[in-house]
């Protein structure tokens, strides 16, 4: 190959002892040529080179870290073809963009990752806060040894009622309460699923032997509560103060 010196890539012709027989100008330009082909190769890539660049493997392609004039370590794709005991070697730099792109990807990923985890953390915080708000939205307040009041707060959603239910039942279980005043004064909306949950709750309370007195019902709740009422036969009182007056006073 007469014209090898003009090849636009680093090219080496080597023998089985890794002695360089000839090379392209590009090779001289890029590499510090020392004692043989192995002298171009980074120490940690030496073994890899020796086991991949040898006459018994006629054709091979291998990534090696090479020492250039500019940098002590650059990733190269090295292609080898052996013919008549001579190895023809072409080295082309592993696309530099790949390193850059993977670096950029890494940065983007780090950002996303942080955001992802922060969001997860916020979500957890939020769930805990909602759970806490739910728990505080239906406290059982004892007014008298036989009377307690449960003021509901906010919109009555199924999850909230489920949380409240647990608290109420635990409280009623070991108490002497006969009448439970359920106050709707501070209630916003009641969803359809909320009604079902409410029904469940009231049923359970009655099974435990307590009477339910509904008070503070607003006109917009009346329709929904009315359906419940037919099922439950609960007592109803207009306002909380009247209820307290009647059951304690």
């Amino acid at each position: 190959m007469e014209q090898a010196e003009y090849l636009p890539l680093p090219y080496f012709k080597i023998d089985k002892n890794y002695d360089i027989l000839s090379m392209s100008d590009k090779s001289k330009q890029i590499f510090l040529i020392g004692d043989g082909f192995l002298s171009l190769i980074d120490e940690e890539s030496q073994e890899k080179a020796k086991s991949n660049v040898l006459p018994s493997i006629t054709e091979n392609s291998v990534e090696l870290n090479l020492k250039t004039k500019e940098k002590p370590l650059v990733a190269y794709q090295v292609n080898v073809h052996w013919y008549n005991g001579e190895g023809h070697v072409i080295c082309h730099e592993a696309p530099e963009q790949m390193g850059m792109i993977s670096g950029q990807l890494q940065k983007l990923r780090d950002r996303l990752e942080d955001t992802d985890f922060e969001l997860l953390e916020k979500k957890e915080e939020l769930e805990n806060a909602v759970e806490r708000v739910n728990r505080l939205s239906g406290p059982v307040i004892p007014l008298h040894e036989s009377v307690a009041i449960v003021p509901f707060f906010g919109d009555l959603l199924p999850e909230k009622l489920e949380t409240i239910k647990t608290g109420i039942l635990r409280h009623l279980h070991d108490s002497t309460i006969d009448y439970l005043l359920v106050d709707f004064t501070a209630v916003g909306n009641i969803s359809r699923e909320g009604i079902t949950k409410l029904e469940e709750l009231f049923h359970t309370i009655r099974l435990m032997g307590q009477d339910i007195v509904l008070c503070g019902i607003k006109p917009q709740h009346a329709q929904a509560i009315n359906n419940l009422d037919r099922l439950l036969d609960a007592k109803k009182v207009t306002s909380l103060s009247e209820a307290i007056y009647r059951y304690i006073g």
Partner: peptide, 19 residues
Amino acid sequence: WQKNRITVADEHLATSVCD
């Protein structure tokens, strides 16, 4: 990689996933 069984690209991917 030393054994020429995978490429640098494979190594990058593995590193990212491990990370």
